[in-house]
Design a protein around this nucleic acid. Structure first.
Lengths: 211, 211
DNA sequence: AGGCATATTGGCTAGGTGGCCAATGCCCGA
DNA sequence: TCGGGCATTGGCCACCTAGCCAATATGCCT
């Protein structure tokens, strides 16, 4: 497009699937202007790699063994707020998108986009270093209810999924059974569920709960 | 390894993520003896592609938009029982493995293996055409409870996740509330859950339920 | 300051849950 | 043929659920 070739973009890949990493590295190496300088398959080595190589752009997956990719993102940004991290994940969950962006991701691209779009996203993230919003995904789930679960509600939902009753939830959180019930009711309302069982399903579907 | 070079293996890739497909195609093309002759991103075009190209080996992902990868596998095998299909998926769920193998997959490799292992698996599948068992995964979840849900129980679990009560499940299945309850009890026992809410979670965790 | 979401707690009530006792018929593999 | 798993159904009972009526304290944003 532009005559401005720019220098080679030094990339770091973080993905827990070797097949994906190798494929991606191959793909990116074949594209002029990109150079994969580091790869990591888990949160810990990702952080170590980051500190060692300080790549121009990090391509970061969300589902990682151990620490969450979003947590890795937070730590990288805490380390260096200028870091440019492009989330590259198969998760189409709005929750992941929201959390990534508010944790400081420079962009969010799902693996369901064409390679060209990915390349463009990487260049975009690299060039406008300061800009934050740079999304490569068409449009997340349209089933928008808008309601976000509060911190407490997410805690309760995580107990719900384990099959605890309201009374047990109350004991575990040090609150009364009545309060736990109020939280459950709020969860049902926000997730549009008619029963706690459905709320758990909704939680998984929306990416609030993870396997 | 062997001096027996064999002819080039004609591969077909089925994966819903373009980034994955492109990366994989790149990776495989760089490996001598492999040739990617077709790619598909969904069940329908996968079947059409299969009939048109009749590749030596199909690399098939399970999570596909629309029809399940396992369903695609079933249809391919129905079309031609000799077809060699190697499942290549990120799912570590025993349920997916079990279903794939009983549907006639020539092998099951997760994306968490090294590319070399994948290459070896492809060659293995291609060479011993008749052999069925050829697994590339170390060992699936060891949290083996052994108990498999019956057809009816899976139906009930799918209603459970939607928040239906025992009475509603009974009406939907045309059985009595008491029978629905018996199925739920069996599900709880088999999944090691103490409440239906936990049973749903277990279903997602074990891959019996899908998002 | 006033409004709004959040977190906390209470009682009442119809209905749902899941463990326990139990039974019948079917089909399949040993 | 004799289990054993499966699908089906029944009652009893202590407990749990989720809707309804409510209240109070904390924050944060305008």
């Amino acid at each position: 497009m532009s005559g401005k070739a720019g220098r080679t973009i030094r990339l770091m890949l973080v993905d827990d699937h070797p097949v994906m990493r190798a494929g991606l590295a191959n793909l990116l190496s074949g594209e002029p202007g990109f150079s994969v300088v580091a790869q990591a398959s888990d949160a810990l080595s990702a952080l170590a790699c980051w500190r060692e190589h300080k790549p121009d752009v990090v391509l970061l997956d969300i589902s990682l063994p151990g620490l969450d990719g979003i947590e890795v993102l937070r730590q990288i940004k805490a380390d260096e707020p200028q870091a440019r991290v492009l989330m590259l994940t198969s998760s189409e969950a709005k929750e992941d998108y929201r959390q990534s962006m508010s944790a400081g991701a420079a962009g969010y691209v799902t693996k369901s986009v064409d390679p060209d779009v990915l390349f463009a996203a990487i260049r975009g993230v690299f060039e406008r270093q300061g800009v934050a919003e740079q999304t490569g995904l068409g449009c997340l789930d349209g089933d928008e209810s808008g309601e976000t679960l509060s911190q407490r509600e997410q805690e309760v939902l995580n107990l719900l999924r384990q099959g605890f009753s309201n009374g047990e939830i109350g004991k575990l959180l040090g609150i009364s059974r009545r309060t736990a019930r109020a939280h459950v009711s709020a969860i049902l309302r926000k997730l549009g569920a008619s029963a706690r069982t459905e709320a758990v399903t909704r939680g998984f579907e929306k990416g609030i709960l993870k396997i």
